[in-house]
Write a protein that binds this DNA or RNA. Structure first.
Lengths: 112, 112
DNA sequence: GCCCCGCGTTCCAAATCAGAACTACTAGCA
DNA sequence: TGCTAGTAGTTCTGATTTGGAACGCGGGGC
């Protein structure tokens, strides 16, 4: 089955995942909940490539999870802020955060 | 950044996502919460290829989210059941389910 | 013996991703 | 005016992952 076919799945979980259920989208949402909003910030914080960030932001905006707002007219700059709809996903991130804190201890990258 | 580097990330959300944050893993977990447990069932229900199902199950078992239990000795058959640790992820799936029900209406696959 | 089921594994082509380079617009500075 | 820098993407190429189907394997059942 194609990943993109999920959005017509009978299961609401599958439909939700078709939108936010990939590696980076949830990480981007996490950053939005943390208050990050600019393209470069999101790219740096998540560690995703600009390519990925751009495509995910586009999809999230189209889905109405994020909103693209201009915070500067002259150089024409935008920031991405969560909509009400987007904020409703926060509990899931909290679950992941708590679960990670409880079950996946922080390790040194080098496994010192 | 590599996806696999996430498991040493300072952020508990990132670490959790490094384990369960991909397309199919969450869908497999959903099925486990629904009571599905056998390899073929999971493959059919999620629509993922057997390839994917096998790799995700392996990872989840290694992480202690699922447990591989023999339900038949003679033909040697296994089923995958959630551990306590795994069940703690359920709230996240509920969030996704509720969000999907509220914000992504069911559409016909053919857009009739 | 022969075919079927459950559970993976392997193979190949296609899609996706990582990483860096490149473009576009504006501002600051000389 | 030309040069450099910051922000926001887009494009390119090689590597990884995925999709889809076929194959292997250990038991049954007929």
């Amino acid at each position: 089955m194609k990943w993109s076919d999920l959005d017509t799945n009978w299961c609401p979980v599958a439909r939700t995942l078709s939108l936010v259920g990939d590696r980076w989208t949830l990480l981007i949402l996490r950053d939005c909940f943390l208050g990050l909003a600019k393209f470069e910030e999101l790219a740096k914080s998540t560690g995703a490539t600009r390519h990925i960030v751009a495509s995910r932001l586009k999809r999230l905006v189209e889905a109405g999870v994020l909103e693209k707002q201009a915070y500067s007219e002259r150089p024409k700059r935008f920031e991405y802020v969560l909509t009400v709809k987007g904020r409703e996903l926060e509990p899931a991130l909290h679950t992941f955060r708590d679960w990670g804190k409880a079950h996946i201890p922080v390790r040194r990258a080098a496994k010192a």
